[in-house]
């Protein structure tokens, strides 16, 4: 069975909005990230061990609002004792089975339940400022926030800040609405859908 990506019907590759006479670094690049393995990992209250005793793919579980990452995996803090692990390269389920016990953690495969939009370009933060109440000036590389964008609950993962590269994740069913909101906010800068 072939899987259909959440933004399959709306992500139209090409240049859009006010892109004419602009350098490539001035416009926003918008990409849909597909085929990611995504697992939510929740440490049980009854598990009294310190989270620093555990590793996943060689990574520590990050402290609040932080991200642990290597070339294969990103682990995002999304709440107290609550993380999201993402990978497009390795089999996360095997890695999790090797490192984390079902008696100590609640593990849920969310791989097909999230829409992920990646924004890059120097104005990427300006786009997000239009719909999200977070103070983006205080947020740096490898930090993560859960917030809202035009009323849609999103997880915003700051991959890089030189230049800006930001992933915005939401529930799959809100993906098309989020995509419309984000692309609408990008029109003034011009955007390239990749």
């Amino acid at each position: 069975m072939k899987s259909i990506s959440p933004l399959n019907g709306v992500h139209l590759v090409g240049d859009h909005g006010n892109f004419k006479n602009k350098n490539s670094d001035e416009i926003i690049n918008i990409k849909e990230l597909k085929n990611f393995k995504i697992f939510q990992i929740v440490k049980f209250k009854k598990n009294k061990k310190n989270i620093n005793d555990y590793k996943l793919s060689g990574l520590d579980f990050p402290d609040k609002l932080r991200v642990s990452q290597n070339n294969d995996v990103r682990i995002l803090w999304i709440g107290p004792n609550n993380w999201l692990a993402l990978s497009a390269k390795i089999s996360l389920s095997e890695e999790i089975a090797k490192n984390l016990s079902n008696d100590e953690f609640a593990i849920t495969d969310l791989s097909h339940s999230k829409a992920i939009i990646e924004l890059s370009g120097k104005n990427a933060k300006e786009v997000l400022k239009k719909g999200c109440p977070i103070n983006f000036n205080d947020i740096n590389k490898n930090e993560v926030v859960n917030s809202i964008f035009n009323g849609i609950a999103v997880t915003i993962d700051f991959i890089n800040d030189q230049p800006n590269k930001i992933r915005v994740m939401c529930l799959r069913s809100f993906g098309e609405s989020l995509y419309h909101s984000v692309t609408d906010a990008s029109l003034e800068f011009g955007y390239k859908a990749i």
């Binding site: 709440g79 109440p133 859960n146």
Partner: peptide
């Protein structure tokens, strides 16, 4: 207490 100062919209 977990995330810091946030807008009421998130609550």
């Amino acid at each position: 207490p977990h995330c810091g100062l946030r807008s009421q919209n998130e609550f």
